[in-house]
């Protein structure tokens, strides 16, 4: 137990726009937690800052007791914090299996894959995410739902302690969403801490016991989904957008 991720006073400005504004929160080891906010609230920017893809203007990020502010993305991944992308990014001209193998070839992934060998380990992950039948395919021919699963498989290949999932349900049919739900639950049961964004609460309602709601770069509220859904400021933030559950 204990705090695995501690973000303090994180601020990121793009020119005149403050995308993330004095943002602070803590995540406990093994927690399963959501981050919601309307379009442009700053969710992706928070992920980019934590995973090292952007440098914050102010604030600090501590992971597993270490200050990781300013480290490079691959260094952070090798400490055990990995993120997926809202717009899936696969290696187009490589097989699905090799897409996952790349992650297993990172120093951290390699250590985990040592006993069974890279190929075996990557195949095992593909079975977990349900893509083993398509191991030899190039990702370009996969449907969007499969690409989302591959995105999670690639992240899992680095053997993460905490997984940051950026809108893993966006653009998916109901059944595909169910698949990903099940997959994420399994990962969570295996002990991986999960931090997941969504821009409507409905997606996360039945999944996570705790949600942080953000708007215009700031935390509005933090608590169980029921409470968050009824919070006055959350309702205001979503006003005119068809409501929190839309």
């Amino acid at each position: 137990m204990g705090v695995i991720l501690e973000v303090k006073n994180l601020t990121k400005k793009f020119g005149g726009l403050t995308a993330v504004n004095d943002f602070s929160f803590e995540i406990q080891r093994g927690e399963f937690i959501g981050l919601i906010g309307p379009n442009g609230a700053g969710k992706t920017t928070v992920f980019n800052l934590i995973s090292g893809f952007e440098k914050p203007n102010a604030g600090s990020i501590r992971f597993d007791g270490m200050d990781i502010t300013g480290l490079k993305p691959f260094q952070i991944v090798n400490l055990g914090l990995v993120r997926t992308f809202q717009l899936v990014r696969s290696f187009h001209y490589m097989s699905v299996l090799d897409n996952v193998s790349v992650a297993c070839l990172s120093p951290r992934g390699k250590k985990a894959a040592e006993k069974v060998g890279i190929d075996q380990y990557a195949s095992r992950i593909l079975s977990e995410v349900g893509l083993i039948d398509k191991a030899r395919f190039p990702p370009v021919i996969l449907p969007h739902g499969d690409l989302r699963r591959l995105e999670i498989g690639k992240a899992a290949g680095t053997n993460p302690q905490i997984l940051l999932l950026d809108e893993p349900f966006s653009g998916l049919s109901y059944e595909e969403q169910e698949h990903i739900h099940a997959l994420i639950r399994r990962l969570s049961n295996e002990g991986v801490t999960i931090f997941i964004t969504g821009h409507v609460l409905r997606e996360l309602m039945n999944l996570v016991p705790r949600v942080i709601a953000m708007h215009q770069g700031k935390v509005i509220t933090d608590g169980p989904p029921q409470e968050v859904a009824n919070h006055k400021l959350v309702l205001e933030a979503y006003l005119g957008r068809g409501g929190v559950f839309a």
């Binding site: 991944v77 992308f85 990014r89 001209y93 120093p107």
Partner: peptide, 10 residues
């Protein structure tokens, strides 16, 4: 194929 995705894969 994708340098930042490789970075994100550690």
């Amino acid at each position: 194929d994708d340098e930042s995705a490789a970075d994100a894969s550690g």
